[in-house]
C-alpha cells in the first residue's frame, strides 16, 4: 500500500498507472464486500430468487442494504412500488457523495458512467485518495478501485447463491473476521482528519452517533443522521476559546 502523505509529488512521474493503483488500494474493501455479498447471495436464493436474478440485482442495483431489503420485501409479498420506493429511500444518502468528489474530477466522459460504482466504501476511499493523486491518474484510479469493488460484490453474490450455505457452515469464523477490514480501513481514512479540536470533536460525535443508531437498528438512516449531527457540531463549535478553528 502507499503512503498518502509522502507520495503526492512523486506520483506524477513514478509509481504504477492509475488503474493498477486503484485496484491495489481497493483490496482492503474485499474483506468487507465478499462476506456481505456471500450473505446476500444466500439470503436472495432462500427468498426464492434464482442465481441469475440474484446476480442481476447485485450487478444493477449494487447497494448492499437496499438489496437485502429488496429481496426481503419481495419475498414477503410487499407491493412493488413500495419495494422500489424503499430501495431508493435507503440509497438516498448517496446523494452527497458525488458533489464531494466533483472538485477533484478531471474532464472525462467516463465519470458519469463510473458513478454507478460510487458506494459508501468507494466514496470514503476516493475522498481521501483523489486529492493526493496526479490529475492524469484519477479516472484510472477510480475505474480500478470501483471495478474491483463491483466485481467482488458480484462474485461474492454468485458464491453465496451457489454455495453460501456450505461456505458459512464450513468457515464461520472467516465470515466473522474478514468484515473487520471495513472499520479498519475507515479508521485509517478518518484519523488523518483529526486536525484540530473542532474537527476531532465533531468527528467523534459523528462516529458515536452512527454507532448508537446502528445498535438501535437504524444503520442506514443513521449514516446521514450522524453525518448531519457531526456537521452541526462542527458549525456550532465556532467559540473563540477553541483553538484550531480552521477546517
Amino acid at each position: 500500500m502507499t503512503s498518502p502523505r509522502s507520495e503526492t509529488s512523486t506520483n506524477a512521474t513514478h509509481g504504477p498507472p492509475g488503474v493498477l493503483r486503484g485496484i491495489r488500494e481497493a483490496i482492503p474493501l474485499l474483506g468487507g464486500y465478499i462476506p456481505v455479498a456471500v450473505s446476500f447471495g444466500l439470503v436472495s436464493v432462500q427468498a426464492g430468487f434464482g442465481v441469475l436474478e440474484t446476480l442481476a440485482i447485485s450487478t444493477l442495483i449494487y447497494a448492499g442494504a437496499s438489496q437485502f431489503l429488496f429481496v426481503g420485501m419481495v419475498a414477503s409479498g410487499a407491493p412493488l412500488w413500495l419495494v422500489v420506493a424503499m430501495t431508493l429511500l435507503i440509497n438516498l444518502r448517496h446523494v452527497v457523495y458525488a458533489p464531494n468528489l466533483a472538485a477533484w474530477l478531471t474532464p472525462s466522459r467516463w465519470w458519469p458512467w463510473l458513478m454507478h460504482g460510487l458506494t459508501d466504501q468507494v466514496f470514503a476511499l476516493a475522498h481521501t485518495r483523489l486529492p493526493q493523486l496526479p490529475e492524469r491518474q484519477r479516472v484510472g484510479w477510480f475505474l480500478g478501485a470501483a471495478l474491483l469493488a463491483w466485481l467482488s460484490w458480484i462474485a461474492g453474490s454468485l458464491l453465496g447463491a451457489v454455495a453460501g450455505e456450505w461456505l458459512t457452515a464450513r468457515w464461520p469464523l472467516l465470515g466473522e473476521v474478514m468484515p473487520f477490514a471495513l472499520p479498519a480501513l475507515f479508521l485509517v481514512l478518518v484519523v488523518p482528519r483529526f486536525t484540530s479540536p473542532r474537527w476531532a470533536l465533531a468527528l467523534t460525535v459523528c462516529v458515536a452517533a452512527a454507532l448508537a443508531f446502528t445498535l438501535n437498528g437504524l444503520a442506514n438512516v443513521g449514516i446521514p443522521l450522524a453525518a448531519g449531527l457531526g456537521a452541526f457540531c462542527f458549525f456550532t463549535l465556532r467559540s473563540p476559546r477553541l483553538p484550531g478553528r480552521s477546517r
Binding site: P35, Q121, L182, A209, G222, A227, G230, A231, F234
Partner: peptide
C-alpha cells in the same frame, strides 16, 4: 462549506456503522 464538512462526516458515519461486530 457545508458540503466540504459533510464529506468527512459521511466517512466517519460509515466508520461508526461498521464498528458493530457481526457477532
Amino acid at each position: 462549506a457545508w458540503l466540504a464538512v459533510l464529506g468527512p462526516m459521511m466517512i466517519a458515519a460509515v466508520l461508526g456503522v461498521s464498528l458493530v461486530p457481526r457477532v
